[in-house]
């Protein structure tokens, strides 16, 4: 019998939390594979998760969303908050722009943090983000 790749409880409960939040959330497993984003994130990323499905780290951090820093320079995966959280095991924050899967370019602010499971190993990482529409109060 071939067993499906079961997710750790930390990821299962994080997805449960994400499904109940109105804030966009993006979840990756320890290898950096995108395993879930919630409905509010769909509005920013331009596609329903059910249609996008699991994406490897190379896919989501590369040409697919074309991440750029505030100067318009293409960001490498390890410069992005989620990449830092996963590789350096620390929280990170940043402002960047991405192209959604609907083709629209959006500026977002991202805070990412690693998830440590009970036995202290990294179970994945989470990015929580906001679209910056430039209408924030002064």
């Amino acid at each position: 019998m071939v067993r499906a790749e079961h997710k750790s409880l930390a990821l299962i409960l994080t997805r449960d939390l994400a499904s109940n939040l109105a804030t966009p959330l993006f979840i990756v497993d320890p290898e950096g594979t995108l395993v879930f984003y919630n409905e509010p994130a769909e509005a920013v990323l331009g596609k329903r998760y059910a249609e996008a499905g699991e994406l490897s780290a190379d896919d989501w951090s590369g040409a697919m969303f074309d991440p750029q820093d505030e100067t318009g320079r293409t960001m490498r995966p390890r410069e992005m908050p989620l990449g830092i959280a996963l590789s350096e095991h620390r929280p990170a924050h940043g402002r960047m722009s991405i192209t959604g899967l609907d083709g629209l370019r959006r500026t977002i602010e991202v805070t990412a943090f690693p998830l440590f499971a009970r036995s202290n190993e990294v179970a994945g990482a989470v990015a929580i983000f906001w679209e910056d529409r430039g209408d924030a109060p002064e």
Binding site: R3, A4, K7, I12, R15
Partner: peptide, 14 residues
């Protein structure tokens, strides 16, 4: 939910 996202499924399966 998909079984791989179900708590405990890995333990109970089959």
């Amino acid at each position: 939910v998909e079984p791989e996202w179900l708590s405990g499924h890995e333990i109970a399966q089959g």
